[in-house]
Structures are given as C-alpha cells and as structure tokens.
Design a protein around this nucleic acid. Sequence first.
DNA 1: AAAATAGTGTCTATAAGACACTATCAT
DNA 2: ATGATAGTGTCTTATAGACACTATTTT
Lengths: 231, 231
Amino acid sequence: MPDSPWQPPRILLAVDLVILTLREARLHILLVERGIAPFLGALALPGGFLHDEHEDIEAAARRELSEEAGLSDVHLEPLAVYGEPDRDPRGRVVSVAYLAVAPRLPEPVAGTDAAGASWMPVEDALAPGTELAFDHRRIIVDGVERARAKLEHTALATAFCAETFTISELQQVYEAVWDVRLDPRNFYRKVQGAHGFIVADGPMRKTPNGRPARLFRAGPVHVLNPPMTRP
Amino acid sequence: MPDSPWQPPRILLAVDLVILTLREARLHILLVERGIAPFLGALALPGGFLHDEHEDIEAAARRELSEEAGLSDVHLEPLAVYGEPDRDPRGRVVSVAYLAVAPRLPEPVAGTDAAGASWMPVEDALAPGTELAFDHRRIIVDGVERARAKLEHTALATAFCAETFTISELQQVYEAVWDVRLDPRNFYRKVQGAHGFIVADGPMRKTPNGRPARLFRAGPVHVLNPPMTRP
DNA sequence: AAAATAGTGTCTATAAGACACTATCAT
DNA sequence: ATGATAGTGTCTTATAGACACTATTTT
C-alpha cells in the first residue's frame, strides 16, 4: 500500500523586537518580564506569534511594538531569523527578529500591555547575572552589533534623536552605542562633511548650559558618504 | 458560549539559496528551471521546504545545496527572510534565504537532481527579459549586494577561490563582484597589508603566462583590517 | 628580443586625529 | 570674570591612488 504523500511540516512563526533607545547618555533596551512558562519571571524581548495566517511579518512586528511597548513611528528593520529546533521548549518556533530604534521617551505607558515593560541599560541586560529567556541574549548581542555597524555608514543615529537635535546630542548617540569618547570638534566637522546626513533646522537655538547650539534635523540621505569611522 | 481558544497559525518554511561563483572572470549564479506550477518553466533559486519539523534551517540549506547543486563544503551564511503574505500563490510560505559562495567548479553534476541546474551570469539573470519565479529577483539582488558589501571588510573573497590561489586570481574576484577595474600593483599591496587575510603557501609557483606568481591560501582572519575599500 | 604578468618603490592628494583658538551663553 | 559648551582653523600623520621601475617567465 502506498505511503500517504509527503507534506512539508508547518511551524509557528514569532517576531521578537530589539528596541533600543538612549537614556542618560547610555544605550537602553526595552525588556518585558515573562508572566507565563517557560522562563516565567525571566526577562525577554517584546514579541509574539503571528496573529493570523495572512498577517505580514513586519506588520506583526509593528503591532507588537505598539501593544507591548506603546511605540509607533519608530525606525524598524529586519535583523535576522532564529530557528534552532530546540530554541523553544514548547515546540518548533522560528522567530524573525527586528531592530527598532526609538528617540528618547518617557517610561513605557503604564495601564497598557506595555506596563510590564521597562528600559534597562544594555550593559546590565547582557551582564552574566541577568536571566534572559530563550536565545534572547544572542538576539540582543546581534541587534546591538547591527546598530553599532549601521551607525558607521547610515544615518541610523538620527533615529535615536528627536525631530530636531544638536550635534552634541548626536555625538552622545555615537558615544553611547559605540562605547567610546569622541573629540567634539572633529565630530562636528565629520558629521557636517557627510552630505545630506543632517540639515540645519532654521537658525534656532537651545540652552542647556554654555553657548547655545544650532538645531538640525535628519537629512534626506541614508547612506553616509564619507562614512563615520569607528576609532 | 466561549470561543475556542486562539491558536497561532502554522506556516510553511522554505529555504532558498543564492549560490555564487566565478566563471570566466564573471560572477555567476546557479539557477534551476521550474518543472511544476506555479512559475512552470521560469528560472528559480535552488531551494525547498523544511523536510520535517525538527530539521535545522541551515541543515536544510546544506541539504538543498547538496541535492540541487551537488555542492558541499562551501561557504554558507544566512541572508534574509522573505515572508510577504502573497509571495507564493499556493499559500503562506516564509522563506529563509542563504548566501552560498563556491569556488570555480565544473558544470553541475548531470545525473543527479542537480541536472536541471545551470550557472548563469548574474547580469543575465537580472536582465529585464529573464523570467524569475516568486520574489527571487529581489532575493538575488539582495544576495549580490551582500556579497559586494562583505568583500569590503571580510575574507569572503577567498571562498570564491580554490584552496590555493594567486593574488591576481583574488583580484579577479573583486573585479567581477564589484564590477570595477583595479590597479594590480595597489591591489597587491593592499591585500598583503590586511593582516591574516591571506598567507603564503610555500614558495610554490604557477604558470599561466608571464612571470610565475606566488601561491597563497586563506588566512586565519575573517574580518579585514584595514578593509578593502571599494573605489 | 618582445610580450606578458609578478612584484617593489615612490610621489602626491586627501583624509583623520590632535589641539590651539575664538564665540556665546549662564552665573 | 569664570566656567561651560559651540564652532573654526591649522598642523601632523596615515592612507589611497597614480605610476615608474625591476623581475621572471613564454614565445
């Protein structure tokens, strides 16, 4: 008697989000505390399963971004796929990870699903003592490394800033993500030399302390030329 | 009465392979002609569905590499995920694309599943007149762009070469993938200056025409420092 | 010898980092 | 005035490309 015809297996598809922002000049990531097994109580990336068979994957990522983090209109890009057969003890789950970058914002909105989410310095999140669910440590490492690399030759840094920003605020982004100190004077000329990276936003000014700085906004160019080289 | 509890949807997972090599100093890609609908008769990337629920995704890519292309032991790395809801008319299929780079090889082995596969210049594959299945044109573009970018700061170029190679062979890789002409003398010094990129393979020699060249093999370093900059 | 490719040396234009200096604010 | 940050100018050094030149082979 003939075998029943071979059918490809069906698997579960999840999205996970590495959401980065800057707080107090340090790189932070948004993590949620898991309320159910497995990894109950451990920290995890915001994310979840595809809602239905026809949902677009990036749309699912934006939905989770909104539901779990209360964020919209932030930079979002595919990061990688994580599909090890045993990465989820409940069964075969393939996850598409996204990298999101948000400007400086207040705490995750309490009273929403985002209430369980909190910003944590990336350094702490990756410290040996921090218990992270699934393979999320690896995903965070990959996401941070992606951000570091993209700062070099794309305008990603502006996604960490508000609509308008000063050059020294932009410098803080580079210093926090790369974890280095940069010379403000050379940084100033370098960032100005990358055509279309940033454009002046009127002769407006601002006053933290010291001479007021000119305000800029993200320019039309997303690929930096020349690139910002890491020391 | 209560709704039945929500269950996440299950989807089909495929792998697709962008397999690049060098033939006659031009960048080629391995394509198969589809023998079944949809896109019957169109060219497509080698690939297929996950075999069973427990198969590792990269293992599936290597399996297809062997079954459809007769290749083993070649460079293989994840490229991206393609999951548009309507990318496959048969239903929801999410594909994980891989980039493979093979050294110069004879034709795909006839008499195997690879018989239907053939090497084609990338330029021809991407020409407007070429009919490609699914979203494979986009995947090829992404794969080639990935190769171009990785040549700059990794040792990927050596994956296009045999075990040992001359510096001018390595230069041909860069010229074909980047589609530029490079000065052999500056290339020579530059490639030598990237520590650990290539190492001499004895004082051996070789004879195409002109002075014999020294032979090298891939060095231990995979991240180039300084990088090979594109003109 | 001529042609061809391998390999070395050197010059020049440019870019990157160090850092002195000026400008404009708060106190 | 002092301190702080913004912004400009300049010098030095490292690097990328142009290209002359030597070396070693085949025909």
